[in-house]
Amino acid sequence: MTPARITVFAGHYGSGKTTLAVNYALRLAREGRRAALCDMDIVNPYFRTADYADLLREGGVELISSPYANTNVEMPWIPLESRRVLDDPALWSVIDLGGDDSGAMAIGRFAAALREKNAALWLVVNPCRPLTRDVESLREVRDAIEAAAGLRFTGMVGNANLGQETEMATVLSSLPLLRELSRAMDLPIIFTAVETSLAEEAAGALTPEDGALFPVTRYQKAAWSVWEPKKA
């Protein structure tokens, strides 16, 4: 698939936008493109692309981010540098938005330019999230985001996961629901994102309707991530 020069990841809070944006930007760089990841999250002061600064640098992705991301200064901030995402025709850019319509508002001011440049706007859906697991709720989220962004979605990304407890069954059982959501939203599934360790096994279960398989690495691991010793 030929990527759009600008790809925007939007969706419900906690749908996995940042994880996918990081993975996608790294992939663009691996394919030999000059890639940038632009953090336009004006909602969440935590779990930002800035957490991945080292990883992105090593992977050859330029990070365009607020100097206040992950600090004690809670300041909604659109980096001045984000202008280059629009203006530099040789820069393959990924935009990570904040959740819901409050997050999508950040690109509202760039709507005309993004339309003109045929930017891709993808709706990230994790059907394991309680407020986006049926057509009615997802439609509400989608409509609110489109209204705030002044843009229409061009595709959907399936990202079924339960964090560390994601199993093959989590992925497989979500496929029919994701297809149903895709049809109801009238948005093609561009990618089905699957944890790298499960990707090979999942590949066989995907149909053309599920889009391409997108192996995703969840890089977050914190001091408070507990693996309890298995009971004998």
């Binding site: 809070y13 906690g14 394991c128 999230r129 309680p130 697991r133 996961n161 339960l162 964090g163 407890e165």
Partner: peptide
């Protein structure tokens, strides 16, 4: 069936 949630949610 489990769902994925933020602590606050």
């Amino acid at each position: 069936e489990k769902v994925l949630m933020k602590g606050n949610e």
